[in-house]
Design a protein around this nucleic acid. Structure first.
Lengths: 153, 153
DNA sequence: TAGGACCTTGGAGTGCACTCCAGGCAAGCC
DNA sequence: GGCTTGCCTGGAGTGCACTCCAAGGTCCTA
C-alpha cells in the first residue's frame, strides 16, 4: 500500500494536514472497522492488532461488541501513521501511547520522546539528502555516457 | 572495456562529497572479511549473505578459498549502503547488481532504476519533512503547556 | 608444533510488523 | 427461515533482512 508508488494524492493529503477533515462531524462519529480501514489505509487486521498491543486508546464498542471508532481515534491513527513513516519501532509508539493514557504528568517524558524522534527524523533526512547527491551523480554519469558513447570517463 | 564490474561509476560516486579514503592504496587492497566488516559496519554474516544472493560482484579468493575484498568492493558496498538507507528492497538492489554484471548495454535500464529510486527518495524526504512539522507542533504544545500549566489549550 | 583466532559452508533460527485463518456471533434483506 | 455480509477472537503463518550454528579448515605467533 504505502510500498507502491506514493501517489501524489497521498502527498497532497499529507500537506493538507493542518485540519484533517473527518468524514463525519463530532457527535455522529461512530465508524466501523472497515470504514476506518478505508480512511487510514490500514487493514482491519492491523487495526485490531494495534489495539491488542496497546497502540490505541481503548476503542468504544457497540452493544454487540463491535468496534466503533471516533474522530479522536482517527486523529490518533493519523499521528501514528506519521510516526510510522519515520521508521519508529512499534514498541516505541506503544510507549508513547502508554504515556498518553497515564495523563498529564507524563508531558515531560512525552516531549523528550518526541524530541528524540525529531532528532532521528532530521538525521534520516540528512542521510537521504546525501544519498540523493550520490544518485544524482550516478544518473548524470549514465546520462553523459549514453549521450557520448565511447568516452568512458 | 573494464565494465564487468562497476569501475568508473563507483569511483566517481565515491569521490562525490567527502571522499571516503580506502584503508589501503590500490595494489595492496586485499581485505579479509573481518576488515571489511569493521570498515562497513556490516557483519561478516551479512557480507557472505550479500554474496550468496548476488548482491556482490564476485569476490576474489585467496589460494585457500578465503575471501579477499578489494577497494572496488568497498566502493560497491558503500553504494549499496546508500541504497539500503533509502529503504530500497534488497531484491531491487540485486536487480541493479545483475545489470552491472551484464555490461554496458544495460546503462539505460540502470539509469531508469536509479531515477525511480530518486523519485522515491524525494517523496520520502517530503514525507519526513511533513512529519517534522507535526512533531514541531506537538513539541511546542508540550513545551507551552509545561511553561504555563493550567491552560490546557 | 601447539594453541587460538579467524575463515569456510549449508541450513536453521530470529525479530519485526504485519497478515491470515478457523470457527462463530450478529444484523439486514427476501 | 435462509442467505449474505460484516464483525469477533486467539493463534498460527508470512516475508523480509538478517543472524547464528555446527563442524571443520586455515593462518599466525611462539
Amino acid at each position: 500500500m504505502i510500498e507502491s508508488t506514493p501517489a501524489p494524492t497521498e502527498r497532497l493529503a499529507a500537506c493538507a494536514s493542518p485540519p484533517p477533515p473527518h468524514p463525519r462531524p463530532d457527535g455522529q462519529d461512530r465508524y466501523t472497522i472497515s470504514e476506518v480501514s478505508a480512511w487510514t489505509g490500514l487493514t482491519a487486521h492491523t487495526l485490531r492488532w494495534y489495539e491488542r498491543i496497546g497502540l490505541m486508546p481503548h476503542v468504544d464498542r457497540s452493544h454487540t461488541g463491535q468496534r466503533r471508532f471516533t474522530n479522536r481515534d482517527l486523529d490518533w491513527l493519523a499521528f501514528v501513521g506519521k510516526l510510522r513513516l519515520t521508521g519508529m519501532p512499534v514498541a516505541d509508539m506503544v510507549r508513547y501511547a502508554e504515556l498518553v493514557r497515564e495523563g498529564e504528568h507524563t508531558f515531560e517524558e512525552r516531549q523528550q520522546l518526541l524530541e528524540a524522534t525529531r532528532r532521528d527524523v532530521r538525521s534520516r533526512i540528512a542521510e537521504l539528502q546525501d544519498t540523493l547527491a550520490v544518485l544524482d551523480h550516478k544518473i548524470d554519469f549514465y546520462a553523459g555516457v549514453r549521450r557520448a558513447p565511447g568516452r568512458t570517463t
